[in-house]
């Protein structure tokens, strides 16, 4: 019969009408991204970093720029560590190659900005902020 298949198709959509919604209620409900999710900034633990530069050399797109200085014991120290997420492929090669495992993804995905500069992060400054926040929360815990 001509048009029968159209009714079958409509029956599919009609059945779907009474099923549970599959769309996520973003941003009220944040998506569950799992612990392997690669995204956001690189969270660098400066105290663990040995400034070997392997992450920079392994980056396929040159999104990591780090500078080192020699200290008084002739040991390499981190001078600056810039992660340009605008260039980043999120391929995980930097995280995997890190010998001291001092790099992790911050796992955020909503950090759009109004300029390209908003995508460039100074990982050392972020680490200092993180330590500062932790110290503050510790002191408030002790007080409270």
């Amino acid at each position: 019969m001509l048009g029968k298949s159209l009714l079958t198709g409509m029956a599919v959509t009609l059945r779907e009408l009474f099923r549970k919604n599959v769309t996520e209620e973003y941003p009220e409900v944040q998506p569950e991204l799992g612990d392997r999710f690669r995204g956001g900034r690189l969270d660098l633990v400066v105290s663990k970093c040995i400034a070997c530069g392997l992450c920079m050399n392994n980056c396929p797109n040159g999104s990591i720029k780090l500078k080192t200085v020699k200290d008084e014991n002739n040991k390499r120290q981190l001078d600056s560590y810039i992660h340009n997420t605008g260039l980043c492929l999120f391929c995980n090669l930097c995280v995997e190659v890190c010998p001291t495992k001092c790099l992790v993804w911050s796992k955020e995905f909503a950090y759009a900005g109004y300029s390209r500069d908003a995508l460039v992060f100074d990982c050392m400054a972020l680490d200092r902020e993180r330590i500062h926040r932790e110290e503050q929360s510790q002191t408030t815990e002790e007080k409270g």
Partner: peptide
């Protein structure tokens, strides 16, 4: 989306996987 969720839990990316590596797989 079901498949992409499977891939996301496997390698942390939904489309740009970089999962299969030289010598095996990443995870």
């Amino acid at each position: 989306e079901r498949i992409l969720d499977l891939f996301n839990s496997l390698c942390g990316a939904r489309m740009t996987f970089n999962y299969i590596r030289v010598g095996g797989v990443g995870w």
